[in-house]
């Protein structure tokens, strides 16, 4: 016989309780999934933006890159919308991620400001290392969010390359912005020694360096929030 429950007497509805028990891990899963997608979108957007300075064919294939930037930006905005809907109880994380992407946009206004792209030949290697370290930091957060044994990310440029993040014995990814800060310091030295003299508008590189520092700080703040939630 079917059991009937009297909801009016303030009893707990076992169906609802079971439903909540089933739904809450699912909600958590989708919440993390949405965060994961935002991190992937941020990593890829930052990477393709750096192509403007690192790839020598940027000026010849401007239309191709414009389309690539546009697509990656749209992916980021879509994933941000989903993340906001699924992380309503984690407003601080949302704000930090918003700061990160604002800083990434600010950082890459450099591509509109530079008139002579040959100037990047001086600092290409250092920019490459800045990009690599930024990517590693963002990936470590991605790993922390997903809590998978190893995260595989496809490089948009070379489909066969994968990035594997080392994990510490504690089970979390190793996070330190020191290496990124060191790379920015090296870039700053190049700015003071060469770029300041060679560039027709040196202030744009000063702004770039400042934005790099800000991005490093923002990533560190977000990692603190993810690693040690209040």
């Amino acid at each position: 016989m079917k059991k009937e429950y009297d909801f009016t007497k303030g009893r707990k509805n076992p169906y609802l309780t079971n439903l909540k028990k089933t739904i809450s891990p699912l909600q958590e899963f989708f919440r993390k999934k949405s965060l994961e997608k935002v991190f992937i979108a941020l990593i890829e957007l930052n990477k393709v933006y750096f192509d403007a300075y690192l790839k020598p064919d940027f000026l010849e294939r401007k239309d191709y890159y414009a389309k690539l930037f546009f697509r990656k930006r749209q992916i980021l905005f879509k994933s941000l919308q989903k993340m906001r809907a699924r992380n309503q109880t984690h407003q601080e994380i949302i704000k930090k991620i918003e700061h990160i992407y604002e800083t990434i946009f600010s950082l890459h206004l450099l591509r509109f400001r530079v008139t002579d792209f040959t100037i990047f030949a001086i600092c290409r290697q250092d920019m490459q290392s800045i990009l690599q370290l930024m990517t590693e930091l963002l990936q470590s957060m991605l790993l922390h969010t997903s809590r998978r044994p190893a995260q595989v990310l496809r490089d948009p440029g070379t489909a066969s390359k994968h990035f594997w993040i080392p994990r510490t014995s504690r089970g979390t990814t190793d996070f330190s912005a020191d290496r990124l800060l060191a790379a920015i310091h090296i870039f700053e030295t190049i700015y003071h020694q060469t770029l300041k003299i060679v560039s027709p508008d040196p202030s744009i590189f000063l702004f770039f360096i400042q934005d790099c520092y800000t991005l490093s700080d923002e990533i560190e703040n977000l990692s603190n929030l993810l690693w040690h939630p209040k």
């Binding site: 414009a66 546009f70 700061h99 946009f105």
Partner: peptide, 23 residues
């Protein structure tokens, strides 16, 4: 249309940057 799209995108990026430094 491409010209307008690229200008609108550039304007949006400038605004995001303005927001970031205004805070």
């Amino acid at each position: 249309h491409q010209y307008f799209t690229s200008r609108m995108v550039q304007l949006s990026e400038i605004l995001f940057s303005l927001h970031h430094v205004a805070c």
